[in-house]
Design a protein around this nucleic acid. Structure first.
Length: 435
RNA sequence: GUCCCCAUCGUCUAGAGGCCUAGGACACCAGGUUUUCAUCCUGGUAACACGAGUUCGAAUCUCGUUGGGGACGCCA
């Protein structure tokens, strides 16, 4: 029998990282075992399910590289099968009709629990039990004729041949009902694994109030999908050794459910950002360049007539310093416009300093006399001037950086001067000190 | 309220009776490298919730306490 798992989101909004992690764990587990990973869209809640939300699920999975086997199954197309199962249960005496509480709305179909204590072995939490008294009968078909989640879920899992149900912690209590349904339907009971939740600093379920909570948030903020994947894989699971930055194949090879934590984990944004930076560093040069270009275009920083050479130079200067794309493009502005902004603190500290304007003027003079304007030449000239004036080189370096870039920090100064070029550098050095 | 689950540095975690004066990573602090910021290198602060028991020996096993979380829908 083929090992088969599924991700069964209900498309009622954006994809939450908790759900995403469930998908990731399912995927990792399945790929490790060489089984099949299926997608089922639980769109039976007509009120809340939307096509946009379905698309969000699909987009999220594609962005993260969560490949599925076969077509997605839409639960709304399975209504007849759900109802047929209810009929079967009615016939076999496992279910009965009841006007619960005398609503007058008609009769609902209730599933009759076995009336015995129940137990199942969770692949993550171990042996779980529940007393019969705590396992009441429950509705499987509403009085309006619509099947309820528990029924639909189990019937579809049987239909799809799901062997391992890996889902969120919040379904633990439902599992007894589900097990009873499988048994009453005469179907083999799958293995269950319940993932602990992702919580915020207060120990409550992580929500949008705690920061980026939806997959789309991470994509919009320019984070790397592989970094999110890796970080989430490590939230509640570890390979058993010290590895943390792990390529997809390594994650697949190392994954096992018995190393999944049974306690909730807190999403640590700082560690995630570190992970993201690790992935950025490892980006192959050509993908880095393509991404850099795209980011610039999207933030409207890129002039139409820019030369590929110039773009190349800028991207390699910024490359070694990037932590995130937004941060990078924020730093890139002054390479493409003369209307770059000035950091007020830097201006005050470096340009409004006594003697700075005069030193800058002298330096400008020295720069214009240079036969070549490469990094080595400007550095030599600057240090020579410092020597002559009897000041520390940094007395020239800092004001120079601020007047040319507007920023207190940045890439190697002499190299960026070379990239920007003599003409523009001299022009910038001659501009009045910003207020 | 009832039922269930959980409990190692601030955070993610290693640890399945002696290898633990508890290891790694992020964050933080200090020093070094650097023209700056970042990177990078070195070092440091920091945890077994508490109490009983079992044992020659407990972070690891048992019980209790406390704390936290989840589920209790004709939602999914």
């Amino acid at each position: 029998m083929t090992l088969r798992t599924r991700f069964a989101p209900s498309p009622t909004g954006q994809v939450h990282i908790g759900n995403l992690r469930a998908a990731i764990f399912n995927w990792l587990f399945t790929r490790h075992a060489g089984g099949e990973f299926l997608l089922r869209i639980e769109d039976t809640d007509r009120e809340r399910s939307t096509p946009e939300a379905v698309q969000a699920v699909l987009n999220a999975m594609q962005w993260l590289g969560l490949t599925t086997d076969g077509e997605a199954l839409y639960q709304s197309t399975r209504r007849e099968a759900h109802l047929a199962a209810a009929e079967t249960l009615l016939q076999s005496g496992h279910a009965y009709k009841l006007d619960k509480g005398g609503t007058g709305k008609g009769e609902a179909v209730l599933f009759k629990m076995p009336g015995t204590d129940m137990a199942f072995r969770d692949l993550i939490k171990g042996d779980l039990h529940k007393a019969a008294a705590d396992l009441p009968d429950f509705v499987i078909v509403r009085s309006d004729g619509n099947p309820v989640f528990h029924l639909a879920n189990v019937v579809d899992d049987i239909h799809m041949g799901i062997t391992h149900v890996i889902r969120g912690d919040d379904h633990v209590e439902n599992t007894y009902r589900h097990v009873a349904l499988y048994q009453a339907l005469g179907a083999p009971v799958p293995r269950f694994a319940h993932l602990p939740m992702i919580v915020n600093a207060q120990g409550k379920p992580y929500s949008k109030r705690d920061g980026a909570a939806y997959v789309g948030d991470f994509r919009d903020k320019g984070y790397e999908p592989d970094a999110l994947f890796n970080y989430l894989a490590l939230l509640g699971w570890n390979p058993g050794d010290d590895r943390e930055v792990m390529p997809r194949e390594e994650l697949v090879a190392a994954f096992s459910l018995d190393r999944v934590q049974s306690k909730a984990a807190q999403f640590d944004f700082r560690k995630f950002e570190w992970m993201n930076a690790e992935y950025l560093k490892r980006l192959p040069p050509d993908s880095y360049r393509a991404r850099f270009r795209r980011e610039l275009e999207e933030s409207k920083l890129l002039p139409a007539d820019i030369s590929e050479n110039y773009l190349d130079s800028v991207s390699s200067l910024l490359r070694e310093r990037i932590k995130s794309w937004p941060e990078t493009t924020l730093q890139a502005g002054y390479f493409f416009t003369e209307h770059y902004s000035f950091d007020p603190d830097a201006v005050r500290k470096r340009l409004k300093k006594e003697g700075a304007p005069e030193l800058l003027a002298a330096l400008r003079e020295a720069f214009s006399a240079l036969p070549n304007f490469d990094a080595a030449s400007t550095e030599t000239a600057l240090r020579a001037l410092a020597e002559t004036r009897g000041v520390n080189a940094s007395e020239l370096i800092h004001p120079l950086r601020v007047i040319v870039t507007g920023q207190p920090g940045g890439p190697s100064l002499f190299h960026l001067l070379e990239v920007i070029g003599r003409e523009r550098v001299l022009a910038r050095m001659a501009r009045p000190i910003p207020a």
